[in-house]
Design a binder for these strands. Structure first.
Length: 572
DNA sequence: TCCTTCGGACATTCAAATCA
DNA sequence: GATTTGAATGTCCGAAGGAT
């Protein structure tokens, strides 16, 4: 289907005609409906408020009587056909459309996140009707369409056999949708006018082309992919190819990871552990579907259902997180829970019983081999870049072995500047701020070290003389990549404690506070001044270059330690 | 009866292939 | 450059089943 064919249909169907009073019965040869004035099909849509006002309710009230003007010739309303007219109707009933041509489903260009999560009908308005009905209007926002993958090789272009179609169908009146054609008068499915009835308008007959199943044998050595969330990529692969792995997409803001909300006083769960109020599968306490007080039902159906539910739950968590994160200060900038959440966790393991300890030796040997390799390529304890950085005595590095977060501190006048980043960003590089294509365009891009954005959170506080003389704090979210800091936003907190504390309690408090405008929406002159302000404090190019390098260095160290730890555990 | 879940059909988008 | 194709991606219908 071409875009030229699809676009007009969407625009014409989006504006529903207003409801008009039903025609009185008996005016049209006993039929409540007027005779058609143009080609079939024509449909009478249900009243918008049918089904109790929820257009999605499958078992709501039956549609009430609703009439509308006839569409222009060739237009199709996306509603079911009317009941067959009673006997005596002056015009023969439209056979082909009612029986074979299903009305085209109307679809909004972009459903809101709530409707998309619930797989329910949305509308163009924001908040949409459904969100208004469920009292979640404030979270009714457009979703973000995933960018289409580029550079995908297409198969051989199969030109349609024009001559064949014209031979078989001398009348080439294809329908506006391109999916069928209007046959010439006299060659219609209803057989034309066998008994003197007035000539019928042209009938819609589906085009001869269609989808023909074709089985592509798997290549030698092909193993079926691990269970996959088919719904996340539409309905699987129409071409029979194994669908690509689904990566969660967080469109809100690169600096705002999808971490769930925790009430004050609660603990922040570790990766893989269910947060308070949620099940292990990530079910939101707010209710399934992201609806307040939703009575979620654990159906306990098959594995496929569970997978599907997993996706829905993940969406719910993402939605909750988005709402929360629109206000969150990222003091724990690269949150461990968030970073790890992006790691695909689907891998097929056999759980069949075997002799205890059978694989220990092999695993231990593999670990030893990996450890040897890592130690061979390990940097010295104080590599030159680190030594050089330390010699400047500008920043104090607070690096605790075993933690994936690193803190840098420095004093600048009466200011205390703290910087936090996490090595988890290396393991889970997010989409680069610089598109892949741009990198590929430059010559020799393949030889360069892969660049990844590393999120960094700065907090600047001022020492107060009096305890209650709190001058507040600035919290800056930024991304370090390729020697620059890309600033996301600058928050201001009246209470510097709120900005500094790394507790769940403080985190909770921060979430209700205004995080400041997105940096790139600020006036250019203001942006310049902020950049100068940070440059003066040593937040500059050299720091932006050093942080990724240090992160890599630390990651290497931590990985080596991890290998040692796991190896000793296996061998114990 | 209402509501949620979710499989899968259907619609839309848009990059690649091909045509003119 | 325009047109066509078709895979990727998104929307949402409607059956099933749990909650009230």
């Amino acid at each position: 289907m071409s875009s030229d064919q699809s676009k007009p249909s969407s625009t014409t169907e989006q504006s529903q005609p207003p409801a008009i009073a039903a025609y009185p019965t008996g005016h049209y040869a006993g039929s409540p409906y007027p005779p058609p004035t143009g080609p079939y099909p024509f449909y009478y849509p249900p009243h918008p408020e049918a089904n109790g006002g929820d257009p999605n309710a499958p078992n709501g009230l039956p549609p009430t009587a609703y009439m509308m003007p006839f569409p222009h010739p060739g237009l199709v309303y996306a509603y079911p056909p009317p009941p067959p007219p009673p006997a005596g109707y002056a015009f023969p009933p439209p056979t082909a459309p009612a029986a074979t041509a299903k009305p085209k489903r109307k679809q909004v260009k972009m459903a809101c996140t709530n409707c998309a999560a619930a797989c329910k009908r949305c509308d163009e308005a924001r908040p949409c009707e459904r969100c208004q009905k469920y009292g979640i209007a404030e979270s009714c926002v457009d979703g973000v369409r995933k960018e289409r993958k580029k550079g995908i090789k297409r198969g051989p272009y199969k030109r349609k056999n024009k001559s064949a179609s014209t031979e078989n169908a001398p009348y080439s009146g294809y329908s506006p949708s391109g999916e069928g054609q209007w046959p010439p008068p006299g060659e219609q499915a209803n057989g034309g006018v066998p008994n003197g009835h007035p000539t019928m308008p042209p009938q819609f007959i589906p085009a001869p082309e269609g989808y023909y199943p074709y089985y592509y044998p798997p290549p030698p050595g092909y193993a079926p992919p691990p269970p996959h969330d088919a719904h996340a990529n539409g309905s699987g692969s129409p071409n029979g190819q194994p669908p690509p792995p689904h990566h969660p997409y967080y469109p809100l803001h690169p600096a705002y990871p999808p971490i769930p909300m925790y009430p004050p006083g609660s603990y922040v769960p570790m990766p893989g552990q269910a947060p308070p109020g949620q099940t292990q599968s990530g079910e939101s306490a707010e209710g399934k579907n992201g609806l307040p007080g939703g009575a979620g039902a654990e159906t306990g159906a098959g594995e496929a259902k569970k997978k599907k539910r997993g996706r829905a739950n993940r969406r719910n968590v993402e939605q909750v997180a988005r709402d929360a994160l629109a206000r969150v200060l990222l003091t724990h900038a690269p949150s461990r829970a968030r970073a790890r959440s992006a790691v695909p966790a689907t891998r097929a393991f056999s759980v069949s019983a075997s002799r205890f300890g059978q694989t220990d030796q092999a695993l231990s040997a593999q670990l030893a081999q990996e450890l040897e390799y890592e130690k061979g390529s390990a940097q010295p304890e104080d590599p030159p870049f680190l030594k050089e950085f330390k010699d400047q005595h500008a920043w104090e590095i607070m690096d605790v072995a075993g933690n994936d977060e690193v803190v840098f501190n420095r004093k600048f006048g009466k200011e205390n500047i703290r910087l936090i980043f996490s090595i988890a960003d290396i393991q889970n590089p997010e989409e680069s701020a610089f598109p892949e294509s741009a990198a590929e365009d430059s010559e020799g891009a393949e030889d360069e070290e892969p660049s990844y954005p590393l999120r960094v959170s700065f907090t600047i506080t001022k020492a107060s003389v009096l305890p209650d003389d709190a001058s507040g704090a600035l919290a800056i979210d930024a991304t370090a990549q390729e020697g620059t800091f890309v600033l996301d936003n600058i928050s201001y907190y009246r209470d510097s404690k709120i900005a500094n504390e790394l507790t769940a309690d403080a985190d909770w408090k921060r979430r209700g506070l205004y995080i400041g405008p997105s940096f790139d929406t600020l006036d250019i002159a203001l942006q310049d001044e902020f950049e100068k302000f940070l440059q003066e404090r040593g937040i500059n190019e050299s720091l932006a270059l050093f942080i990724p390098e240090y992160a890599e260095y630390k990651e290497q160290k931590e990985y080596t330690k991890w290998l040692e730890g796991v190896k000793s555990f296996i061998e114990a």
